[in-house]
Design a binder for these strands. Structure first.
Lengths: 201, 201
DNA sequence: TCTAAAATCTTGACACTGTCAAGATTATCC
DNA sequence: GGATAATCTTGACAGTGTCAAGATTTTAGA
C-alpha cells in the first residue's frame, strides 16, 4: 500500500472520475475545480498541471460521457443485428436511459455548459463517432424500408433530433403533466419513431 | 430629469432588462448578480430586495423570454389563420428563429440553468401557456388531416420535441457538418415536419 | 550512473462571486 | 405627522478560477 506520494500517478483520470462522482452526487452546481482536487486529496492548483482551465476539465468529463454513451448505443444495436427496426428502437431507448440515469453528465454533454467544443479534439472525435454510429443504424432502417429514403444524415438528424428533444424537454420538466400522466417516456418515444416509420410493426 | 434617487423606482424590471442585455453581449458566463447590479447603478446587494437569490433572477429572465416566445409564436400562427399546415410551419420557424436570435436566453429557458422551475409560478404558467398554444396549432392540423389522429398533447410533444431537439443540437454544434454543409436549418426543419405530415404540399 | 530538463505538485495571492447582517434612507398608510 | 414597511448601502465571509513562484519528483541524455 503506497503512502501518500508527492506525485499522484494518474491524477488526470482521478480528477475526471472525481468530477463524475460529484456530478452524480451533487449535480452541476457542485462541480468545482477545487472540490474535485480536494476529493482526490491534492492541492487546489494541482489540476492545472493537467487541465488548462475549468472548461478543459468539463470537456474531459463530457468526453468520458460520450465514450460511455457510444458503448451503450453500440451494444444495444449489436444485440439486435439483422433487425434494423429493433436496432433503432433499442438504441433509442438506450439513449433515453443514459440520459435519465446520468442526467448531470448528459446535460454537460449537450446543454451548453461546454462553450467551445471545437477546442477539444477528443470531444469532437467521439461525438462525431457517436453520430456516425446512429447514421449507420438509420441507414440500415432505410435499406430495410423501415424509414423512407432520404439522405441518411438528414434522416438521422430528424429522427435523433426528435429523440433528443423529447428527453431534453422531459428532463427540464417542460413536458406537460397532461402528457406525462397518461404516457410513459417509452411510449412517447415509441410513438415518435412510429410516426416516422413506413412499416408498422 | 430625476437625479439619482435612493430608490430606483422600478429596480426589479431594470435588473431583468440588464440581465437580458448581459446575456446578449456576454452570454451566460457573464451573468452575475453583482454585474447586473452595477450595470443598473445600484449596490451589489440591492437585488436581494427583489430576488431571493441568483436562481430567482434567472427565473425572472426566463419568464420574460417565454413571454416573448409566446408572443412570437402566437403572431406567426395568427398570420396564417385558416391554413393549419402553414401555421405549423411558420410557428416552427418562429421558434427556430427565436432560438437562433436569442441563443443565451433560449438556453437559460430550456437547458437546465434554472434548477427548480416549480418554485416559480409565473415561469410555470407562461411555459404551460406556450405549450398549450402549440397544442392548439397541432390540433388544428389534425382536424385538417395534415397530422394523423392521436392525442393532441402526445402529437405535440412528438412534433415539438423534434423541433426542439434539432435546434438544440444545432446550437451546441452537435449536428455534423456533412449535414450542415448541404442543408439549411430551415430545410432540416421542413424535412422533419414533412416526415410527420400525412398530406404532402 | 550522474545530471540537466521536464513534469508534477504546493503555497500564496488576487479578483470575483453569492449571500447575509446591520444600518441608512425613503415611501406608505393610519 | 409618526409608525411601519420597503428599499438600498456598506461590511463581512466563504467559495471560486486562475496565475506565479517555488518545491519535489520523474525522465532522458551523456
Amino acid at each position: 500500500m503506497p503512502a501518500k506520494k508527492y506525485h499522484h500517478g494518474d491524477l488526470e483520470n482521478a480528477l475526471i472520475q472525481a468530477g463524475v462522482d460529484i456530478l452524480f452526487q451533487e449535480g452541476i452546481e457542485g462541480l468545482s475545480l477545487r472540490k474535485v482536487a480536494k476529493r482526490v486529496g491534492v492541492s487546489y492548483a494541482a489540476p492545472y498541471a493537467h487541465f488548462k482551465d475549468r472548461q478543459s476539465l468539463i470537456a474531459a468529463i463530457s468526453t468520458e460521457g460520450f465514450k460511455q454513451l457510444y458503448t451503450t448505443l453500440d451494444a444495444a444495436a449489436a444485440a439486435h443485428a439483422g433487425d434494423p427496426k429493433q436496432q433503432l428502437v433499442e438504441a433509442a431507448w438506450a439513449y433515453i436511459q443514459f440520459a435519465m440515469q446520468n442526467t448531470a453528465i448528459f446535460k454537460i454533454m449537450f446543454s451548453g455548459v461546454l462553450e467551445k467544443e471545437k477546442d477539444y479534439p477528443a470531444f469532437v472525435e467521439i461525438s462525431h463517432k457517436t453520430f456516425e454510429r446512429v447514421v449507420e443504424i438509420v441507414r440500415a432502417c432505410q435499406d430495410a424500408g423501415v424509414l423512407r429514403s432520404a439522405p441518411p444524415e438528414l434522416m438521422t438528424v430528424s429522427v435523433w433530433g426528435q429523440l433528443h428533444g423529447v428527453i431534453s424537454l422531459a428532463l427540464e420538466g417542460q413536458i406537460s403533466h397532461t402528457v406525462l400522466d397518461r404516457f410513459t417516456i417509452r411510449e412517447i418515444v415509441s410513438f415518435g419513431i412510429e410516426q416516422m416509420s413506413l412499416s408498422k410493426t
